[in-house]
């Protein structure tokens, strides 16, 4: 088979203790038998490990932080495009998605394709809209409330029963057993990720996740459910197993059909003691454990690239059950000259 040459820019190349999805996304693309890819890493920090993983990433460029705004990002991408002729960009981090969605028309004019949710889809699934989202699409969600000031935690007993989960807008969460703990988490998380803060009723149970891909027309192109087997103190899955749970697949298809979701996503769910699933969060991008789906026979990164390029992609209908992923950390030895280049020139 003649392989199609393609250049793909990938963000989130930070496989650290709270890992970005970039490296597993790249592994999926590299596994493709249809595509011969050149991978351009797009990083935010000089010590993002992906910058130095030359067997996976051909070249890396630094991007301005999302807080710098969409115009700065566009300027940088225009420069990168003049050098690399990217066909596709896969943004993998929550905090940058807004800018990339806003820039989609300009990037398309430059020849860069993406497969992202619309701004409406992106906004609607926000943690602070989850209550309304659950009602609108008839998906069970835990009771939640958005708060903007630390004093508001003292009125939570009216609507919630402790423990509650205090969540940041993009990342981070803590389980609070009383108002004092809730206030501490409020201050800690809001200082890092800003406002608002989301208060969610704690659901005791086991955590399940689904990684999926929607084509924007209501079709689920891929979906693999997973049970976390080992969770780090940051709440990240360090090991997981693919499972055969029809309820989760039905919920996923229902979500994609109702929202006409476009792009990769992750559903985070909790199964309570009665066996009922509650949707805790919808992440509007591929999760860091996506390589499990590739290992189970659904190459979601490859399918996403094809969708971005406007190709027809047949939905995956099957996957291997009982496949596990076990994450590990690994020390690379890096020459200081490489660190110097990325730090001073912004590219390596």
């Amino acid at each position: 088979m003649k392989r199609t040459k393609i250049t793909v820019g990938v963000t989130g190349i930070n496989p650290i203790d709270s890992p970005g999805p970039g490296i597993p996304v790249i592994r999926g693309i590299r596994d493709s038998v249809e595509m011969e890819s050149r991978i351009i890493g797009l990083s935010y920090e000089s010590l993002d490990p992906g910058i130095y993983m030359h067997e996976l990433v051909d070249k890396t460029y630094q991007l301005p932080y999302p807080s710098a705004g969409a115009d700065r990002l566009l300027d940088r991408l225009e420069y990168i495009q003049s050098k690399e002729h990217l066909d596709v960009i896969i943004p993998n981090l929550d905090a940058e998605l807004y800018s990339f969605i806003k820039l989609e028309p300009q990037l398309k004019q430059m020849g860069i394709h993406m497969c992202l949710p619309t701004l409406f889809q992106f906004e609607e699934r926000h943690k602070f809209h989850l209550d309304e989202f659950g009602k609108k699409y008839d998906i069970p969600v835990p009771k939640s409330k958005t708060i903007y000031a630390p004093e508001e935690v003292y009125g939570l007993e009216k609507d919630f029963m402790y423990p509650v989960v205090i969540k940041g807008k993009f990342y981070d969460a803590g389980i609070a057993h009383n108002p004092e703990q809730a206030r501490t988490y409020f201050n800690k998380i809001s200082a890092k990720w800003g406002l608002p803060i989301i208060v969610q009723q704690f659901v005791m149970g086991n955590e399940y996740n689904v990684v999926g891909l929607g084509d924007g027309k209501g079709n689920t192109i891929a979906a693999v459910p997973m049970r976390k087997q080992f969770i780090t103190d940051k709440g990240k899955a360090w090991a997981g197993i693919s499972i055969d749970e029809k309820i989760l697949l039905d919920m996923t298809r229902k979500f994609v059909k109702a929202t006409k979701w476009k792009g990769g996503f992750e559903l985070e769910l909790m199964k309570d003691a009665n066996g009922k699933y509650f949707l805790l969060e919808i992440n509007p991008r591929i999760p860091a454990w996506v390589y499990l789906a590739v290992g189970c026979g659904q190459n979601i990164p490859e399918a996403l690239v094809k969708l971005a390029m406007g190709k027809k992609v047949e939905p995956y209908t099957d996957y291997a059950i009982g496949k596990m992923f076990v994450r590990y950390s690994y020390d690379m030895i890096v020459d200081i000259s490489e660190f110097e280049k990325i730090t001073t020139l912004g590219e390596l």
């Binding site: 086991n206 399940y208 997973m226 049970r227 087997q229 997981g240 197993i241 693919s242 499972i243 055969d244 749970e245 059950i321 009982g322």
Partner: peptide
């Protein structure tokens, strides 16, 4: 029906992902 059990008595519930 999908319960997998090996000769060694290792058993996986494919619906919940639990193993025994």
């Amino acid at each position: 029906k999908n319960l997998a059990i090996s000769e060694n008595g290792f058993c996986l519930n494919p619906v919940t992902g639990e193993s025994f």
